[in-house]
């Protein structure tokens, strides 16, 4: 065995297609999951009557059950009730699972903000929701941007589980190439290299964001 470049040359297009699918699902899932996480996190933070009981139960439950089983649950369970495509289910499963993690991160960020800020905003005549949108959420997101970026790399990794619901993403391509040629090292190492590159890109973006945040904080401090 070893690395077989000939097979890689022959399956290049398959890999690129798979990579594209992975990136596409990641981007869509990340955007919706972050928004969903901010929404649920804010509800948990505000303790909206009745609603926050449900959202709290939701974040606890979805954070402590395996994503793969959740995907199966939605895919095989929901498709009996109404016709939904696998891609919608895939994004939905990712958003519900990773969004719950992001919600807890955002809630933690919101709680760490000094109460005085909220009171100051009220005394300036801002309403409760305005305070949340203009003062608290931007700060909470900035405070927790590191953890949220970690969730971004986790979401990219999680898209690999979508291969079990007929989505032809990168891991699926690697699996197929391996079962076709039986060259596990070539097949899986290529996919791993792509995933790791994506991970490094996310890490790079995280560093850039950190530097920008530092600059901004520095300006405020001086």
């Amino acid at each position: 065995m070893g690395f077989n470049w000939r097979i890689l040359a022959g399956t290049r297009d398959m890999y690129l297609d798979g990579l594209l699918v992975t990136i596409l699902y990641s981007i869509v899932a990340i955007i919706i999951a972050v928004l969903w996480g901010i929404l649920i996190g804010s509800i948990n933070f505000r303790r909206v009557k009745g609603l926050s009981l449900i959202t709290r139960a939701y974040t606890t439950f979805f954070r402590e059950t395996p994503l793969l089983v959740q995907i199966y649950f939605w895919f095989y369970g929901l498709s009996r009730i109404m016709p939904v495509s696998a891609s919608v289910i895939g994004v939905m499963a990712l958003v519900f699972n990773d969004g719950a993690f992001i919600a807890e991160i955002v809630r933690g960020g919101l709680q760490s903000i000094d109460r005085g800020q909220e009171e100051a905003a009220y005394s300036l005549g801002f309403s409760k929701s305005q305070t949340l949108f203009y003062f608290l959420i931007p700060q909470a997101v900035r405070k927790t941007q590191d953890s949220i970026m970690n969730m971004v790399s986790i979401i990219i990794k999680d898209t690999s589980l979508l291969m079990w619901i007929t989505i032809t993403e990168l891991t699926y391509v690697a699996h197929r190439v391996n079962s076709k040629f039986y060259q596990p090292i070539t097949a899986y190492l290529t996919a791993a290299a792509f995933y790791f590159t994506l991970f490094l890109i996310v890490q790079g973006i995280k560093k850039l964001m950190d530097r920008r945040a530092e600059k901004k904080n520095g300006l405020i401090a001086t």
């Binding site: 790399s153 990794k157 999680d158 898209t159 690999s160 589980l161 291969m163 891991t171 690697a174 699996h175 391996n178 039986y182 596990p184 090292i185 097949a187 899986y188 190492l189 996919a191 791993a192 995933y195 790791f196 994506l198 991970f199 490094l200």
Partner: peptide, 19 residues
Amino acid sequence: AQLCRGIPDMLVLLFFYAV
């Protein structure tokens, strides 16, 4: 450690299973 943080568990498992 970086590799394990960047590569999906699914891929690692399938790799071990194949090798």
